[in-house]
């Protein structure tokens, strides 16, 4: 069985915050462990931020639609927007600058972590450009806490 819900909000930073928090609350209520929902939230927030900052950068803020499909062993989170496509209709690589304790202060990156985090946290990523919208889908493996523990 697949459980589904959807929500939409304007692509502004404050509406995005409220939208993300509402999706997170729903996911927790569906029995997904809190630590897993945390990881979903990190990736989802980056994807939504990209919509706000890039897809609608040159136009008035449109809507962001989020649809979650919870399967027995995985969660698909679909993010749609009516903004501009990704450059070359291709997702960014997410290669972030490698940092360590020896990285000089002035070389520390202040951004560019978004796609790196999405790629670290999602087990599968699909993108398609439809006629007038972007459709990005992120997959997360899930073990539901509400399922009874089986002992052998």
């Amino acid at each position: 069985m697949v459980e589904t819900f959807a929500c939409s909000f304007r692509a502004t930073e404050l509406d995005a915050r409220r939208g993300i928090v509402s999706v997170v609350d729903r996911l927790k209520n569906m029995g997904i462990p809190d630590t897993r929902v945390d990881e979903v939230q990190i990736a989802l927030a980056e994807a939504v931020n990209n919509v706000v900052e890039h897809a609608y950068a040159e136009t008035a803020a449109g809507d962001v639609l989020i649809r979650c499909n919870l399967h027995p062993d995985r969660l698909w989170v679909e993010i749609r927007d009516a903004g501009v496509p990704f450059p070359n209709a291709k997702l960014p690589d997410g290669n972030t600058v490698k940092v360590d304790a020896d990285t000089p202060l002035e070389d520390l990156p202040e951004g560019g972590f978004g796609w790196f985090l999405i790629r670290e946290l999602a087990s599968d990523i699909q993108y398609q450009r439809n006629l007038d919208n972007n459709q990005l889908s992120l997959c997360f493996e899930i073990q539901l806490t509400s399922e009874p523990q089986q002992s052998s």
């Binding site: 630590t35 945390d38 939230q41 990190i42 927030a45 980056e46 931020n49 202060l105 002035e106 520390l108 990156p109 202040e110 951004g111 560019g112 972590f113 978004g114 985090l117």
Partner: peptide, 29 residues
């Protein structure tokens, strides 16, 4: 999120080389 992380990095850079920013009380996320 990555914007917030970038802002903390920027805050450390603002302090310059002679001062230092340490972080305390990080929650799990």
């Amino acid at each position: 999120d990555s914007s917030g992380l970038g802002a903390i990095v920027a805050a450390m850079k603002q302090l310059g080389k002679d001062r230092r920013l340490d972080l305390a009380g990080l929650t799990p996320m």
